[in-house]
Design a protein around this nucleic acid. Structure first.
Length: 460
RNA sequence: GUGGAUGUAGCUCAGUUGGUUAGAGCGCCGGAUUGUGGUUCCGGAGGUCGCCGGUUCAAGCCCGGUCUUCCACCCCA
């Protein structure tokens, strides 16, 4: 016997019980997506490597799973690269990988979507609203709530710059988490405001360094943030200029005038603040989510240009975000289609699963798919049950017949383990009298009904 | 990618300074109960101690490597 079989690091099997719960999440999200007019789309698990590289920042490129070329991959390596290796020279990072692999597993759903839009632009009617629920892969080191294979549920609107899309997506977040019964905070920020901060501080070229440092504020505190900016080459004067950010507290209506005053000299920032105001004014009352402007929210993905979103659970111990998203003005530009602004959000189904499990929010009824089990008393009785079984199934009730005529205790245990609510007993006596004995598993009570009454009895 | 922990039965975990045949609880299977599960009682099966190598008369225990899971960093759903 060989070694115990196993699966790759960071991947998981899902048992029937886990799948019922996962499908509950997917179905809930899918239902809301469709109610908002988004249409389904699927793209391949693998993309051409060059489609993905350079879209997620330097860190992102490292995390892309590359697929070794089939056949003898070494043959596909360019002669000059081979020569470098044979001469013992250092090959630039990524260079050899791009020679050995021309395909890669998708890293997210947004970039493949942009690729799809460019490729099919003549068939699409814009603005195009699509949703996509598929796994993505990242070569990250696994941790709690961090997997190498996980499912994202995306909704994007492309081909419109209207802020009504941002408003709609916030409402969509709220609807999904209301349906799932989870309290969340939707954090929102504007890349234009972040650029404005860098401008006002006199170091617009340092936006990325400033922003990624600020993003860690709630984690490492103000002093460490300033220290990191300093090591990244941000001037002391600029760091002093950022100070008002740390004083910003309260609701949007409290934050807004202070931001407007502070960032008055940046027309970019003013535009961003105006956009945020529209979103806050238009979004209306929310049921499960609270919308919060968070000027320290950055998000690493390079392609965001406008609003950025992040959702955190207010219940449970999940440290990371459970959803993300934002507006990208030129994602399709890299593939040759200009002036195509889009905005989208992504639900992290696996993290949502972990939160719902921890906080006990899954509905009880997900335990089983079968409602009625026919006990098997032997060949003659089973043949009789088969007819009734068919009628029950045709009435839309999930039912099954125990396949073997084993002793009753085992059959009842099967029903118990599988969470089946009702067991129909048709033995010698019932067969003779044309009746069915129905046992309700939870209470343990049972009663005898005529066969004709079976459907009415169990559908109640 | 960097640093640090971890791995013993299906699951959760004991296992002394290295010393016969590695234990418990839960679960599983069988019986008490040949037409009744979830309670109870009795009995039983199940372990290459993650994997490979080393030290030793002797390794679950010590050493090296490797894989897994977890924690911090990085980043993110």
């Amino acid at each position: 016997m060989a070694n115990k079989p196993s699966i790759p690091k960071g991947t998981r099997d899902f048992s029937p019980q886990e799948m019922l719960r996962r499908q509950y999440i997917f179905d809930t999200i899918r239902g809301v997506f469709q109610r908002y007019g988004y249409l389904p789309l699927e793209t391949p698990a693998m993309e051409n490597l060059e489609t993905l590289t350079g879209k997620y920042g330097e860190e992102g490129d490292r995390l892309i799973f590359k697929i070794l070329n089939s056949g003898d991959a070494w043959k596909s390596v360019a002669p000059n690269v081979k020569a470098m290796i044979q001469a013992g020279e250092e090959v630039p990072p990524g260079r050899l990988a791009s020679e050995l692999a021309e395909k890669a597993l998708r890293y997210d759903l947004t970039v493949p979507f942009a690729r799809y839009v460019v490729q099919h632009q003549n068939e699409i009617s814009f603005p195009f609203k699509r949703y996509q629920i598929q796994p993505v892969w990242r070569a990250d080191r696994p941790q709690k709530g961090r997997y190498r294979e996980f499912v994202q549920c995306d909704a994007d609107v492309i081909g419109s710059t209207s802020l009504l899309s941002e408003v709609e997506l916030v409402q969509l977040f709220d609807d999904v988490f209301t349906a799932l019964g989870l309290k969340v905070v939707v954090k929102i920020n504007e890349r234009k405001v972040l650029s404005g901060i860098a401008e006002v501080c006199g170091q617009p070229e340092k936006v990325v360094d400033i922003v990624t440092a600020i993003d860690k504020l709630d984690k490492i505190g103000r002093e460490k943030v300033e220290e990191e900016m300093r090591t990244k080459g941000v001037s002391d004067e600029a760091i002093r200029g950022i100070a008002p950010l740390f004083e910003l507290k309260g609701t949007w209506t409290e934050q807004r005038p202070r931001l407007e005053e502070w960032l008055a000299s940046s027309t970019k920032a003013q535009q961003g603040l105006k956009d945020m105001s529209l979103v806050f004014n238009a979004v209306g009352g929310l049921k499960s989510a609270t919308l919060e402007f968070d000027p320290t929210l950055a998000r690493g993905l390079d392609y965001y240009t406008g609003a950025i979103f992040e959702v955190k659970a207010l219940e449970g111990s999940m440290p990371g975000s459970i959803c993300g998203g934002g507006r990208y003005d030129d994602l399709t530009g890299i593939f040759g289609l200009k002036n195509m602004s889009g905005v989208g959000i992504s639900f992290g189904a696996d993290r949502i699963y972990d939160v719902l499990l921890e906080t006990n929010k899954f509905p009880e009824s997900l335990g089983s798919s079968t409602r009625l089990l026919f006990a098997n008393f032997g060949e003659q009785e089973a043949m009789h049950c088969l007819k009734l079984l068919r009628a029950v199934r045709e009435a839309g009730i999930a039912a099954e017949l125990y396949p073997d005529a084993v002793k009753m205790a085992k059959q009842f245990k099967y029903a118990d383990d599988k969470g089946i609510a009702l067991v129909a007993i048709i033995g010698e006596n019932e067969l003779k009298e044309g009746t069915v004995t129905i046992k309700e598993m939870v209470s343990g009570t049972q009663r005898s009904v005529r066969e004709e009454e079976l459907l009415a009895t169990i559908s109640a």
